[in-house]
């Protein structure tokens, strides 16, 4: 920004360097409740801060003072008459301008039923430091610490939806399923014996009846036995590795051979039974 355009400001500012200081006359605060009854009213000493002020949600704080030149009693209207509300803990700050008449008289009202947007977020524990800033093109600036103010806690502003991703996020632990429980070996062994017992009985019976299959290896019957064995092997292969489509393809081809070999084997067996051979 070019400075030339502000030469007027510059001249005014330079003129103000040695100007008189601004001062406050008869600053006073009053706290009244929602039903207009006065709770506290005191003049403000600029040297010593009063007891902290506390406002309930419906209370009204009124502040009045007159801005005068320090040397004289002449009231002035400064360029800047701001109340600064500052939360030293959170660092939040709010600035509220105060309307000052040309005679320097000012009145400010803070109605907690309708708090202005300039008040920073408040907490119940931390007071707001309230100070008055007086700035002028013609006078030296002045700053007065007025009092500490406790306001009802405000709701905290919602953070940006992505704000949490800019901080370490809570750790996530996976809850694993409990380890599978294995029964004691004796119980497993007993179960195994129970499962295998019918097979023992079966083998015992087979040994007893001693079945004989004299034509099993004959040239007409063995192919059927072999294709049946191949079908079993194919199902085992399916269990281990093969896809369904492969099984259907191989099984279909094998079924044709099995059917042909079965027909041949049954015919041979039939012939043997009727003693044709």
């Amino acid at each position: 920004m070019g400075l030339l355009s502000f030469c007027l400001l510059s001249l005014l500012a330079i003129a103000g360097v040695d100007a008189a200081q601004l001062s406050l006359q008869s600053p006073r605060f009053t706290i009244s409740s929602g039903d207009a009854s006065q709770l506290r009213s005191e003049p403000i000493s600029l040297k010593q801060r009063p007891e902290p002020l506390k406002l309930a949600p419906t209370d009204v704080l009124k502040l009045s003072f007159q801005v005068v030149e320090k040397d004289g009693e002449k009231g002035v209207q400064p360029h800047q008459t701001f109340l600064r509300f500052f939360d030293a803990v959170s660092g939040e700050e709010g600035i509220q301008p105060v309307r000052v008449s040309s005679s320097g008289k000012a009145k400010f009202e803070l109605n907690m039923a309708k708090p202005p947007g300039s008040i920073p977020p408040t907490t119940a524990e931390n007071p707001l430091n309230v100070s008055l800033l007086l700035g002028s093109f013609e006078h030296s600036p002045a700053r007065y610490e007025l009092f500490d103010l406790f306001l009802p806690a405000s709701q905290s502003a919602p953070p940006h939806e992505l704000e949490h991703t800019f901080h370490p996020q809570p750790l996530i632990h996976h809850t694993f399923r409990p380890e599978q429980k294995v029964p004691p070996r004796i119980i497993s062994a007993a179960g195994a014996i129970l499962v295998l017992a019918p097979w023992v009985v079966l083998v015992g019976f087979l040994a007893h009846i001693k079945p004989s299959v004299p034509q099993l290896l004959s040239i007409n019957i063995f192919p059927f036995i072999a294709t049946l064995g191949a079908s079993e092997a194919l199902l085992f292969w399916y269990w281990v590795d093969l896809k369904l489509g492969d099984v259907l393809l191989y099984g279909g081809v094998l079924a044709l051979f099995t059917a042909a070999a079965g027909k041949k084997a049954l015919a041979t067996k039939g012939d043997l039974r009727v003693g044709r051979k």
Binding site: L3, L9, A13, H79, F137
Partner: peptide
């Protein structure tokens, strides 16, 4: 523009 009367100085308020 930004203006500040603080601190008292010999430059323009801006």
């Amino acid at each position: 523009p930004l203006i500040s009367h603080f601190p008292e100085r010999d430059t323009p308020a801006t």
